[in-house]
């Protein structure tokens, strides 16, 4: 039973590291992009544009957050 628990914990840790890791903002970004796509899919070109702009925007914000700071 303890072995099964360890396996489950290790499996959970793997997915946490894979999906969230040290960039939780990108995980949230993907959820937002999916939400926007589902909400705006009937709006034609606007939906497509918003999804793309959101992906580029979140990438830029996360990259900026990871910059090396003074000191």
């Amino acid at each position: 039973m303890a072995t099964v628990g360890r396996w489950v914990a290790a499996f959970g840790r793997f997915w946490w590291d894979f999906l969230v890791g040290d960039t939780p903002e990108l995980f949230v970004a993907v959820l937002v992009v999916i939400g926007l796509a589902l909400a705006l899919h009937r709006n034609g070109g606007l939906g497509a544009a918003v999804v793309i702009v959101a992906a580029v925007g979140f990438l830029s914000l996360s990259t900026w957050r990871g910059r090396r700071r003074r000191g």
């Binding site: 970004a29 992906a55 996360s62 990259t63 910059r67």
Partner: peptide, 27 residues
């Protein structure tokens, strides 16, 4: 496709972010 697209996005955005940070000298 939505789930797969989401997983690819998580992976892709992370790789792209790290590659940009490395190319620009921040990492």
């Amino acid at each position: 496709r939505v789930v797969v697209g989401g997983l690819l996005l998580v992976l892709g955005l992370n790789w792209l972010r790290k590659a940009v940070l490395r190319s620009s000298g921040h990492k």
